[in-house]
Simulated assay, not measured.
Amino acid sequence: MNTTTEVLEVKVDTARHLEERLNDAVRNLQDVAVRTRKHGILVTRLNPGHYTVSLSDKVPFGITREQSR
């Protein structure tokens, strides 16, 4: 089971905004992760233009992983 302590949802209508908004979400969670030093960041593509960015204890601290569902 993947335990997540914080999740940000990213929805975009254009590819132009995708990288910028995903990077912003990852940076926000990096600030949180540094405080606990227990979670990495998991970026999950749910659908085209719809992603979640979350802290995950299944990803080592300091690492960002991507997955698709």
Rank of each mutant, 00 (worst) to 15 (best):
T52G: 03
G62K: 08
V53M: 08
V53C: 06
T36F: 13
L46T: 10
L42G: 02
P48L: 01
H50A: 12
T44D: 06
V43Y: 02
G40K: 05
D57G: 10
K38M: 15
S56R: 05
I41H: 00
V34C: 12
T52E: 02
V43E: 01
G62E: 11
P48E: 09
L55I: 06
G49E: 00
L42T: 03
K58N: 13
I41K: 01
R35V: 14
S56F: 01
S56M: 06
K38P: 01
L42A: 08
S56H: 06
R45G: 10
V53A: 05
V53Y: 00
P48V: 06
A33N: 04
Y51P: 01
L46A: 12
Y51E: 08
T36P: 02
L46V: 11
K38W: 06
A33I: 05
G62C: 11
V43A: 06
G40Y: 08
H39C: 15
V53T: 08
H50Y: 07
A33P: 02
G49H: 00
K58V: 08
F61L: 09
P48M: 04
I41T: 05
R45L: 14
H50T: 13
Y51C: 03
T52I: 04
T52V: 04
P48K: 00
G49N: 02
T44R: 06
G49Q: 02
N47D: 12
V59Y: 07
K58W: 09
P48F: 01
V53H: 03
D57Q: 12
G49L: 00
S56L: 08
R35P: 01
I41L: 05
R35Y: 06
G40E: 13
H39N: 14
R37L: 13
R45S: 14
N47S: 13
L55V: 05
T36E: 12
V53P: 00
L42W: 00
L55D: 05
V53K: 02
V53R: 03
P48S: 12
V59I: 14
R37C: 14
K58F: 04
G62V: 13
F61Y: 14
V34S: 09
G40M: 11
S56C: 12
S56K: 05
R45N: 13
Y51I: 07
R37Y: 03
T52K: 02
S54T: 09
T52Q: 03
G49D: 01
G40L: 13
S54M: 08
G49K: 00
